[in-house]
Design a protein around this nucleic acid. Structure first.
Lengths: 340, 340
DNA sequence: TTGAAAGCGCTACCAC
DNA sequence: GTGGTAGCGCTTTCAA
C-alpha cells in the first residue's frame, strides 16, 4: 500500500477534470459524457489505476469481504466447504478472509474480534470443539453483522445455519450394520457439547432402538480430540469381556485410527468387526480396507452457507434465519460386510 | 459494517474529551494521563468498541493483510502451506485473504487484481499451471508491493522464493528405484512450463545418467492436468512393446491414478512395476499399496514464505530477494521393492 | 454533464 | 497532557 498507486485525484489532475467526474466515470454512472468516460477509462488503464477498496469501504461502510472461521483449513472437509463458499460469494463480488481456531475457544474469539475489526460484512463460522458458549457470536448479532453457522452449530443462536442431517446419517449407517448381521455395535464419539457429536450419537441410539437392539453403556466411548484418544477408546472396546462386532466411528479420522488398532490386534475387518466412519474424507476411499462411511456434501454446505449470507445481505428486511439440512449418503465400501 | 459500531468520536463525546486523546489512549501512547487512559479503556469496553481497521488502514496506508493465491485450497499440500503462513504472520499481526486460481491464468490475474485493490501489504503466491507469463506479478513489484513465490515459482521474477529441492527429491527417488533393481524407469510429469515439473524431470534424468542408464524418450509422458491425463499416460506406458519396471510420478495424485490403472490391468506393484510419487499427501500413506514418495515440508514452506515477507516489510532497505530451498525426504513404503 | 465540498473513522502534526 | 485540524481516497449530495 505504497504511494506508488494512482488515485482518482491523479487521474483528475492529468485529465484536467474534477475528482467527482472521474469517480462517476469509473463507476459507469449514467450521467457522464461518453467521451469523458472514455478518456477517464483510458487514463486509468494507462496509469495502472486500481480502485482503493479500503477508501471505498470506509466511505460506503461495506467491505465486500466476509470472514470465515474454521477449526482447521488442512482438514479436507473444511477446505471443501471454503471452496464452496468462495465459489458462491466471489460471483457476488466478495472476498474472503480466513481464520483457523485450531479447536481453541480463545483463538476463536480472537479470530472473530479481528474480523469484526476488519469490518467484514458477515461471518461464516464452524465453531471449535472447545467452544461451549456463544457470547462472542451473540455480540455480532446485536451489532447486526450477519452470522451464518455451518456444520458445527449452536442451537442457542438465532442465526441461519446449515448442517448435515447427522442424525439420519448415523441412523442409516448403524441400520446398515444391523442389516449386515451386526448385533453388538460400539460407538466412538466426540464431546457431546459439539452438536454433530450429539446428533450422531442419537442417530446411533435410535437405529438400535428401531431394531430392538438393547443399548449397552460399555459399548459407547467418547473422545475430546481425534488424534490419540480414539486409539485408547478402541483398545478399551477390544478389552471388553465380549467383543463388539462393529464399531461406528463419529468421523473418518477416528475410523482410520480404529482400523490401525484392529490391524495391530490382528482382528479381521469386516469379518470379525465391521467399521464405519463419517464424512467421506478422500482417504477413506483409498485406505485398506476402504471405509464404509457417511458422505457429507461439504462443497454444497459451503455454497448453502454463502447463499444464506447473500440472501440476508440483499434482503435484510424479509430475511428470516432458518436452518438448512443437507442430506448425507451412505457410501458402502469394504470395511463392512454385505447384506444377506 | 453498520452504524451500530461505536467510534472514537462516540467515546470522546461520552467522556467529554477530544478525539485525539481517545485515539492516543487507545493505542497506549506514552504522553497520556494514566487516569484518562483508564477511563477511555473502560468506556471502550463498555461500549463494545472495536477499532475500525478500514479507517486505520486508509490513514496509515497499511492494511496488515496479506494476500495468498494458491491453485486449490482443498489440496492438502496447499492447505498446509497456508497453515504455516497463517501461523507465522498472525504472530506479527497480519490477517490473510485467500484466493484460489483453480489452475486458471485468468482467474489468477483477477485474484491478484482484487488483492491489489484491497491493498494487501504483500502477496504470497504459488502460480497456476496455466500461467506462462508473469506481468501481473511484475506490476506488483513495480508498485513496490512485496511478492513472495512458493513451490511453483517463476525464474524470471526477481522476488524472494521458497521452493523444495525438487531436483534432489526426484534424484533420490529415481536413484532408489535403480538401487532396488529397476532399469526401465518411466516418468509421468506435468507441463514443463511449471518450474517444479521441470526440476523433477531433471532430477529424473540426472539420476539415470549418474547410474549409466540410457534415457528413453518413450518412457517419458507429460500431462497438463492431473485428473484424467495421467490415466491415459499410464496406459500409454503399459502399451509399450517393452514394459517399464518402474514409474516415477511427479506427484501423489498422479501416482494414485497410475496405481489404479495398474490394478485394472492386474499388474503387481511393486513386483512387476514399482511406483513412486511426490509430495507425501496423507492418502499416500493409507492407500494399498502405500506409496513410496518424496515428502515436502509444506507447513515449513508456508512459514518460510511468511518469514521472507515479514523480513521484507520490516527491513525494506537491507532486504535482498533470495531463494530458500527446503530439503525433501524420501519416504519408503510398499509401492517399491526393497534394496538388495 | 460537471464541480465543490462534506465526511466515512482514524492518525499525527502542531499549538497550547 | 490535551485539543484542533488536516487529510488518507473515495462517494455522494447539492448547485451550477
Amino acid at each position: 500500500m505504497k504511494n506508488t498507486q494512482a488515485t482518482i485525484r491523479d487521474l483528475a489532475l492529468k485529465l484536467n477534470i474534477s475528482i467527482s467526474t472521474v469517480s462517476r466515470a469509473l463507476r459507469g454512472a449514467q450521467d457522464v459524457n461518453p467521451e469523458t468516460k472514455k478518456a477517464v477509462l483510458e487514463m486509468a488503464a494507462l496509469m495502472n489505476y486500481e480502485p482503493n477498496k479500503v477508501a471505498q469501504s470506509l466511505r460506503i461502510k461495506k467491505t465486500n469481504t466476509i470472514g470465515i472461521v474454521v477449526p482447521e483449513i488442512a482438514i479436507h472437509f473444511f477446505a471443501s466447504v471454503i471452496s464452496g463458499i468462495q465459489h458462491y460469494t466471489s460471483k457476488h463480488g466478495y472476498s474472503i478472509m480466513i481464520c483457523q481456531s485450531l479447536e481453541s475457544f480463545e483463538t476463536e474469539k480472537a479470530n472473530v474480534q479481528m474480523l469484526v475489526s476488519n469490518r467484514v460484512d458477515g461471518l461464516l463460522i464452524s465453531v471449535a470443539s472447545e467452544t461451549r458458549e456463544y457470547q462472542h457470536l451473540e455480540k455480532l448479532v446485536e451489532k447486526k453483522i450477519p452470522v451464518v453457522l455451518f456444520d458445527r452449530v449452536a442451537d442457542s443462536l438465532d442465526v441461519p445455519k446449515v448442517v448435515v442431517d447427522d442424525h439420519d446419517g448415523a441412523f442409516k449407517a448403524v441400520d446398515y450394520l444391523i442389516k449386515t448381521g451386526c448385533k453388538r455395535i460400539a460407538y466412538i464419539g466426540g464431546s457431546l457439547t459439539l452438536s454433530i457429536s450429539n446428533q450422531r450419537m442419537k442417530g446411533y441410539l435410535d437405529a438400535l432402538k428401531a431394531n430392538n437392539i438393547p443399548v449397552r453403556e460399555e459399548l459407547m466411548v467418547f473422545c475430546n480430540e481425534f488424534h490419540d484418544e480414539p486409539i485408547v477408546a478402541t483398545r478399551q472396546l477390544l478389552d471388553l469381556p465380549e467383543l463388539p462386532d462393529a464399531i461406528f466411528c463419529m468421523n473418518d479420522p477416528v475410523a482410520i485410527l480404529t482400523l490401525q488398532v484392529l490391524k495391530q490386534r490382528k482382528i479381521a475387518v469386516p469379518d470379525e468387526i465391521s467399521v464405519v466412519g463419517f464424512t467421506n474424507e478422500p482417504v477413506s476411499r483409498y485406505i485398506e480396507p476402504s471405509i464404509t462411511t457417511v458422505a457429507q456434501p461439504a462443497y454444497q454446505m459451503g455454497e448453502a452457507a454463502a447463499r444464506m449470507f447473500i440472501d440476508q445481505v440483499e434482503n435484510p428486511s424479509s430475511f428470516k434465519p432458518r436452518m438448512e439440512t443437507l442430506q448425507t449418503e451412505l457410501i458402502i465400501r469394504n470395511s463392512t460386510r454385505r447384506i444377506g
